[in-house]
Structures are given as structure tokens and as C-alpha cells.
Design a binder for these strands. Structure first.
Lengths: 125, 125, 125, 125
DNA sequence: GTGGTCTAGACCACA
DNA sequence: GTGGTCTAGACCACA
């Protein structure tokens, strides 16, 4: 469900936050759906529970998740089932721009990059 | 020459390191070329000189840059003028994979992502 | 464990780097052993934590030390318990050569130097 | 006459200062003897003349050298021809202590170190 | 508790 | 002018 890259330089808790946001925006985590418990996730990714907890707390503060005493957190109401395509696209626009900037610094052509993206889609379906 | 994103979560000095690596791989910084001075870069990006210096030192340790007492650092020898396309592509493979993973989590289609990438190329040429 | 000479002209962080290398080579810091924490060492030697941190980071880049998020650094694997005598001797060969060169410039005899070394061994056992 | 180690961490001008002090203490540079010119030394060691000049100035301030308009600097009076053995030995005591400390950290025996010193004497006679 | 990043600022060595 | 070292101090991420 989540993929964490500890060596990427991006804080682990931020990686979790962003991934939950995406899964909610896409409807893969629908309104009311339960999230994996802090412990479970922490174990699975060999990470301290506090790291996951910090991510969940931030998402709760944003109003995206809801806490329930003694029960797993759930996706809060008011999201609809799936955000509009343009809203979803906007969530990865910064990364796309940075990737293109990197490709430019590597003197790669749009075709080179398109081919790389294509291969990446096929890699882990 | 460099673009820094202070809010991206990635340490500034790492952003510099990666960008220098790309510019060298692409030949835009050729063997023997002098790099912008630490102070110059620091001023331009409103960043502390030590942050730039840390990036340069790491690149020197890697053997990509060379120090010259009292003079600007230069791109070390043994780089050739431009790395092979496959070597260059490999430098952004991780980012491409992460972008695709994000697109998947957003339930975007390959076509959606391709369109986004296309638009990104046109944005700041 | 470490002895720092602030007035020696050699940067403090380099002194730390070299001493860790020696303690690892001799097996006094064995594979897996935890190093004193940055703050601890900094306090003990009345030195800024960043100075120690810089030394540790360099040793990590060399592969001699390993980072563990939130925990103390340790000596990396692949060192064996003690380097061979010849490898250990090689680590101070440059200093030995410089000392002999200095003795020559002072017109001291090999016996004079040997006596000095002898006395030095006895000084702080 | 002088040996400079740019990579040793010790500032070049300090290396010059210390070596002049030793050559004077040993009588190899006697009272009134002329020193190599700043330019000459700078060229020979591929170093900026200001670096040598700084060393000479410091030695002048110490009273060890004397400046003469248009002529090479000379060793100042009042040194006698050779300092006493104990005074000369004292000049390298700190280095000897550091070498012994390093040997201890490498878990070398006094015999190991003595052998290394012996070999070092023979290396560049 | 652990290490990491960044800043503002002083001062040094070298060209 | 160039880069390097060190400090004091704030704040962050992770266990």
C-alpha cells in the first residue's frame, strides 16, 4: 500500500502523508475506509511507530483522517469518492516539473524521458 | 544554472550535489570547467555559503570536482565530455519510478501522466 | 579515547577522523561497536558538535562507520577485528617520515631520536 | 632544503616557519647566513610567494631572521652556532608524543615503532 | 536519547 | 578574489 524510500532525502513521515493524500484523492481509500494501524505499518516498514503516528496526526489535523478511540483511523467525510482528474494531476505537478528539470540538466530529449516513463510503468505493475 | 526548492524536503546541499552531477554527466559542465564560487551561488540562492560548500566538498570526495588552493573548483578529469545516454537516463530513473508510483496511487493513466510531462516541458524552456 | 590538539594546525575534525581510523584498525573499536555520541564527544572536548559530526560523516562516506537513524553510529562490517601489523604501521608511516625529517633538520642522531621516542612512551601510559 | 606537504593539513607557511627554526637551531643555517629568496622558494615548491613571505615575516617578528633592503634575509645574531641538544630535542617533542599516541591507538609495540623509525631514517638519507 | 540541516558570523590559508 | 574551519544556536527527523 505504501512504499517508503529511506534514502531519498524526503522525511519518512512526509512520504506517508503524501501517499495517503494520493490514495484518498484517487478513491482507493474511500470515505470511511479504515487505515492500517500505526503498529502494523511500522512493523511492515521497519520504522518507529512514532514516525507513522506523526504522519497520521498531521493528516487528522488537515481533516483528511478521523481518529476513533480504540479503532483504526478512517478517511473523513466530504471527499467524494474520487477527486477530479485535474485536482489529482495537480498533486504530482511539482514532481513532474522537477523530473523535467532534471532531464533538461541531463540533456535528455522529451522522447528520452517519455521512453523512461514508459519503461517505469511496465516495471512494477 | 541551479534551481533550489527549499520546501521540497530534500536537503539543499543534496539538491546542489545532484544537479552538479547531472550537469557534468550531460557535458554542460565539461572537464576542467570552473564552478560558480561558493559565495556567488550562496548569494544567488539566498543560502548560507556553508550549505554550498558542503555540497562541493562531497563532490570533491566523490572525485567529480577538484580543489585548487585559492582558486575556483573545477570539474575533475576522466569524465569525457558527455556520459552515454543510458548512463544519463539512469541518473533520473529513481525519480521517474517514484513519479509513476505516485501517478498510480492517484489512479492516473499513462496518458494522463504523459500529458502532464508534456505540459511540464513546455512550461519553462 | 580521543586526544585533540587545537593548536597543532591540523583541523580538529581531521584529528578525529584519523584517530577513529586508528582505533578501528587496531580493533580497539571492533566491528559493530558503537561510537561515542556526537554531543558526548563535543562536550568532553569542549568542541562544537558540528565539528565531530563532520568527522563522523566523512568516516561514514568512507564506509568505516554506519549510521542508524536515531541511534549511535557503529563501526561498519568488513573490518575484521584487527588489521595486519603492516597495514597498521602504514597508517603512521607519513608521520614517522616527517618526524625523522625534522630530526635531520635539527641535526639529531638516530640515537637522540630513539631516546626521545623512548621517553615519550613512558610519559603517559 | 625545505620539504612541503600540502596535503598534511598543516598550513604551508607554518611548515616553512618550523623548518627554518630547526635549521637555525641545528646550525645548518648559521648566524648571518642568507636564506633563499621568497621567489626562489615559491617557484621551487609551486607555491604563491605570499605564502613564503608570510613565513619569513613571522620569523622576522620573532627575531630569528633579519630583513635587508634589496638583499636576501639572513639569520639574525645571538643564536650561537648550534643550540644545545636538549633545546633541539625539545623542538620535536610534541611531534614525538603525537607519534607515540598514534602508535598506541594502532596497538603497535615500542619495537614496532622503533623499527618504523629505523626504516624511515634509511629511506631518504 | 540519536544524528542532520541550516544560519549568521568570525577568522584563516592561499592566489 | 578563492575555499576551509569553527562556533553558537535553532530546529528537524527518527527511536
Amino acid at each position: 500500500m505504501f512504499i517508503l524510500h529511506p534514502g531519498s532525502g524526503i522525511p519518512l513521515y512526509r512520504q506517508v502523508v503524501e501517499q495517503v493524500r494520493r490514495l484518498v484523492a484517487s478513491g482507493q481509500l474511500a470515505e470511511g475506509a479504515a487505515l492500517p494501524s500505526v503498529r502494523e505499518l511500522a512493523l511492515e516498514h521497519a520504522v518507529n511507530p512514532m514516525t507513522i503516528s506523526k504522519a497520521y496526526s498531521q493528516l487528522e489535523a488537515e481533516g483528511l483522517l478521523q481518529r476513533h478511540r480504540g479503532k483504526p483511523m478512517t478517511v473523513a467525510g466530504g471527499q467524494g469518492s474520487q477527486a477530479s482528474p485535474s485536482r489529482r494531476v495537480r498533486q504530482i505537478e511539482p514532481q513532474a516539473l522537477q523530473l523535467v528539470a532534471a532531464a533538461r540538466q541531463l540533456d535528455l530529449s522529451p522522447a528520452d524521458l517519455a521512453a523512461l516513463i514508459d519503461r517505469s510503468w511496465r516495471k512494477k505493475p
